[in-house]
Design a binder for these strands. Structure first.
Lengths: 158, 158
DNA sequence: CGGTTTGTTCGGTATTGACCGAATGAACCG
DNA sequence: CGGTTCATTCGGTCAATACCGAACAAACCG
């Protein structure tokens, strides 16, 4: 298996572990390393050796969830897919909202525990709440810090 | 549906979205709010209205992945399950290793892109790498900060 | 308009996984 | 040892989902 193929397959599995389907993972993995960066449906079916229908469905899915975008070019009838610029930053923001979700569950849980609950019981919920409210609070600043550093790095290059 | 039941079901769905099975999510959700905090298999089957075999399998799964632990009590033959103390902190460390995984994929990807790749292509991989190496680097300190704050909060209570 | 190129949808199959009840096993007690 | 109380494992069923090829639809070109 070519290193590119290996990369694509591994990425597919990795995606599957994040609860996204494997085909979508393969498409995304391929889009990360292919040349040119924009690929038509036919390019993708060719590269991934899957039915066009399958690729179409998954590519559109990736578009809908904002991981990939579809672009058109003048004079060419085919659609082109590419990874959405800024996607990775958006992914981190997604992780942040996960934190908020956990925090809410912790709060709901604390409302529900019985008054005669054992102290260790309450402790678990408190730890949960503590962790996620801390990170909901601190994460945005960290993200901003990354943005600054990243912009600087880009400027240094040019 | 009782609020407890609702909590348990919601938690099951939430867990499912994190790619863990729903039964395991229900068990975990129930363990967060039940009294007493330690529950036998029979307690669990009773609370969740599922077959003992199912609960057994999922409870053991939660034990294996370290989310729950099994404890025994003198003079009682049943096993007791409870949420593993310190679990939430451990969960965050797990998120950290996710970061490392993504970072590695970014590095593998950069080795694979063709030399004549378009600049936007390289930019995506660079952004990916930048995000995840930043967080691999910064996250541990944040975690330590949380630990300090949390310990202080515990001391204030006692 | 008829033919071609492109993308989407639809029906079917095969695989996977959740969940169940029944059988099995293992520890304990009389 | 025989019976009881636990937990685990096993075989089967049902539902969900990935993936395919073929049919369809829509845009374009001569």
């Amino acid at each position: 298996m070519e290193p590119q193929e290996k990369f694509v397959e591994d990425f597919g599995l990795f995606f599957e572990a994040q609860n996204l389907n494997r085909t979508a993972g393969r498409i995304f993995g391929w889009l990360l390393i292919c040349t040119p960066a924009e690929q038509t449906l036919d390019d993708l079916t060719d590269a991934l050796q899957m039915a066009k229908s399958t690729v179409s469905t998954s590519a559109r899915f990736l578009d809908e969830v904002g991981m990939v975008e579809r672009v058109s070019k003048p004079g060419i009838r085919k659609d082109f897919y590419r990874i959405r610029p800024g996607f990775w930053e958006q992914a981190l923001k997604g992780a942040m909202s996960q934190f908020a979700g956990f925090k809410q569950f912790a709060e709901r849980g604390m409302d529900l525990v019985a008054d005669d609950a054992a102290p260790e019981q309450v402790r678990v919920l408190k730890e949960m709440h503590s962790v996620y409210s801390f990170f909901s609070r601190e994460f945005p600043a960290l993200l901003e810090q990354w943005e600054r550093e990243h912009r600087e790095a880009l400027n240094d290059e040019s």
